[in-house]
């Protein structure tokens, strides 16, 4: 649990990991709300309350919460996952360039030799 919380709080937002963690948080919270049966509370959309009392602020809060996390789960979380994949792919390519590209390779012994035509310093 501690490890999970550490990952949650330490994952920086603007990183592939940060985006994935936020998508996972949305999914987990939504699934918990769903399993708890809060879908019924969305009747507040039509001005009804599952408790029968339309002024029941607890029912309204639960309904709004479920609605927000449902739309976040369906619309936002997949976008965050795709964003993480895109971000990761771009960064991976850049990382490869850095580690395997011409600049990252150790210089060939001949490359370090001064060329005949170059003026000696």
């Amino acid at each position: 649990m501690k490890k999970i919380l550490r990952i949650l709080f330490h994952a920086r937002l603007f990183t592939p990991k940060g985006l994935l963690v936020r998508a996972a948080v949305i999914a987990v919270v939504f699934l918990v709300l769903h399993v708890c049966g809060l879908r019924e509370y969305t009747s507040i959309i039509s001005g009804m309350s599952p408790t029968g009392d339309t002024a029941d602020s607890r029912a309204i809060t639960l309904g709004v919460m479920y609605g927000c996390f449902y739309f976040a789960f369906v619309l936002v979380a997949p976008i965050l996952v795709l964003a993480a994949v895109f971000f990761g792919a771009v960064e991976y390519v850049g990382h490869r360039e850095l580690t395997h590209g011409p600049e990252a390779r150790p210089p060939h012994p001949t490359e370090s030799q001064p060329r005949r035509s170059e003026p000696q310093q």
Binding site: L13, F14, T15, G18, L19, L75, P78, I79, L80, V81, L82, A83, A84, V85, F86, F87, V90, E91
Partner: peptide
């Protein structure tokens, strides 16, 4: 910049 671009690409694919 990359995160925002990623979100834009994700939205363009998902929505």
């Amino acid at each position: 910049l990359l995160a925002c671009a990623g979100v834009a690409v994700g939205a363009a694919i998902w929505l």
